[in-house]
Amino acid sequence: MTELARPKIHQKSSAKNRYKLAADNGWAQRFQLVIDDFTQGAKLYRLIWSLAFSDIKLRYRGSLIGPFWLTISTAIQIGAMSFLYADLLQTNIHTYIPFLTVSLILWGYLSSIINDGCTCFSAHDALIKGTRMPFVVHVVRSVIRNTIILMHNVIVIVVVFVLMDVHPSLYMLAAIPGFLLWLVDGVAISIFLGILCARFRDIPQIIAAIIQVAFFVTPIMWQVATLKGHPGTENIILYNPFVYILGIVRNPILNEPLDIVFITKALIISAVVILVSLFSFARLRGRIAFWV
């Protein structure tokens, strides 16, 4: 047996281990705490990654093909819906199936980021109350977990594109900056909803209901072209923030145009989300541990 009283490694203390936490006193301190939260969270990237990864791994522990069930269930859902809705909406199946596949998968990603964001703090109350950890860890964990799921579903998109003879183009790469914006938005909205839902336990249900309605009023199962001329459609498109957010990633993948007005609207929506989230995080960060 080795000597227990004197463990082998001793870490030297340094000034960076200095820590001070005072009662809430104004915005300067609040934003300083937010900055600290982000910088310390960034240092824990390995922890965040393995927490997100273990979430997926645990869900499928003991399963033969593991997370590829995600791929299969998405493929089945899309396969079943494609033919029905292509017929129902009387559209060309060769353009409709790729459209539906990309739309459903991207929407699934957005909606589960929002729904998981609601519980990103309250689901980890033991961790929050047990140890001092940057709150952003829980938020990014939720976003990364959903991104890993998305990566499994991308396989379905690739297979559908091959089957439907959709040729890849360089323009598709324009989806990348849009996707990076999604990641930032995802973190922002999760922070905001996570705080809100920790305080008010009814909000997750309300959000889930809103997302469900948004699914139907956003062109996911139907294309704008199919409903051209239908009264009311234009307003649904014009005032629906999800149209722009979804579009900045979906349009390049489907080889549809992205104009500057469209991009600007997506950026404005993102800016609002980020600002609201940042201010509420600064204001309420100290209360989260009491609420979860």
């Binding site: 200095r18 936490l21 005072a22 009662a23 033991a126 140890t131 100290g286």
Partner: peptide, 28 residues
């Protein structure tokens, strides 16, 4: 531990801190 932000007063420290508050804490 710095988990609860005080309503009044100040906590200050220097040194690597570990808190063992609940046996299962931080464990999955």
């Amino acid at each position: 531990s710095g988990i609860y932000q005080p309503t009044a007063g100040t906590l200050s420290m220097e040194g690597k801190l570990i808190s063992l508050l609940d046996p299962g804490q931080g464990m999955n």
